[in-house]
Design a protein around this nucleic acid. Structure first.
Lengths: 160, 160
DNA sequence: TATGCCCTTTACGTCAACGTCAAGACCCGG
DNA sequence: CCGGGTCTTGACGTTGACGTAAAGGGCATA
């Protein structure tokens, strides 16, 4: 069993991907239903490849930036049918460029939203500092939170 | 009627705001239902102030960056109850800081998505240039699109 | 062999964010 | 006084993205 363990051939169960990305089995099956994923099968059971995992990452990120599953599917479809459906691609091109403009707008919006939230936080903190300093959270809390959030994203290979 | 026309006192009908921001009356009433807007009344009719309009802008931008109406409401509520509900504010503070972290993540996501869409566009364009140059859109089209998108955002005061 | 645990499919339920009528008030020009 | 247009309040429908419960298969461990 020498070449058997080569990394790119590693596969994942539905639950492994779910716990890794905090999704639910139902969601992954739903994506499959909608044509965004097409894992292999071992008997009845789904077997996800590295490629499937990569697609899932794209799906989840797409969702985070506000794309619909439909839009995500269109994007994913580009990575496959290189040669066929040329006319389709010409159409996709247009939609993608529109989407880029959308996203650039959205990026601006996010900048603005971040700034406002920061300002709001400052206001609250000043307010609290004056009148109820006891309610101010310890710095450690926030630190803790950041740490927890970052934990979910290390490229871990072995199980916990 | 000298002071009568001072700008900050200008009011808006529901339709004016809708056409200005490409929303629907139903949506504005829905936001009101959910406590995000509370326009004055002239008899039965809603009368939106400059403040209401400002809130609406925040609502719409919040939506674009993926906030739920619920989250938007929480943010808007900060601009009002300055003194009361202090404990509440301490809680909001935490949620806001979380949201900031979220948004920063989302900004990264958007960067990534933009880059991938650009790459995808490049691929398609190269592909088309080689095999079906006839399908390539004229540069003018894209230009047109950009222009249209920018038009919607000038701070216009007079009607069309 | 029984007890779990994880997998499967099918099907109905849910929640947000509106859309879409329906039925009626108000005002305005002809 | 009669449409026509804009406003109002219900109330029900819709769409996307799943949640949840039911009914069953497969494998392992006690």
């Amino acid at each position: 069993m020498p070449t058997e363990l080569r990394r790119p051939e590693r596969t994942f169960t539905i639950r492994q991907l779910c716990t890794e990305f905090k999704a639910t089995p139902r969601a992954l099956r739903f994506y499959e239903d909608k044509g965004l994923l097409t894992p292999a099968r071992d008997g009845m059971n789904r077997v996800y490849s590295y490629k499937d995992r990569a697609r899932l990452i794209l799906i989840l990120r797409g969702k985070r930036v506000g794309l619909s599953l439909q839009e995500i599917r269109e994007i994913l479809e580009l990575y496959g049918e290189h040669d066929e459906a040329m006319q389709q691609n010409a159409h996709s091109l247009k939609k993608f460029k529109e989407k880029i403009v959308d996203l650039e707008q959205q990026r601006e919006d996010i900048e603005g939203a971040i700034n406002e939230l920061r300002a709001a936080c400052d206001r609250i903190e000043k307010h609290l500092a004056e009148k109820r300093p006891d309610l101010l959270p310890k710095a450690a809390d926030y630190d803790q939170m950041l740490r927890a959030r970052l934990d979910g994203h290390g490229e871990m290979v072995g199980a916990k």
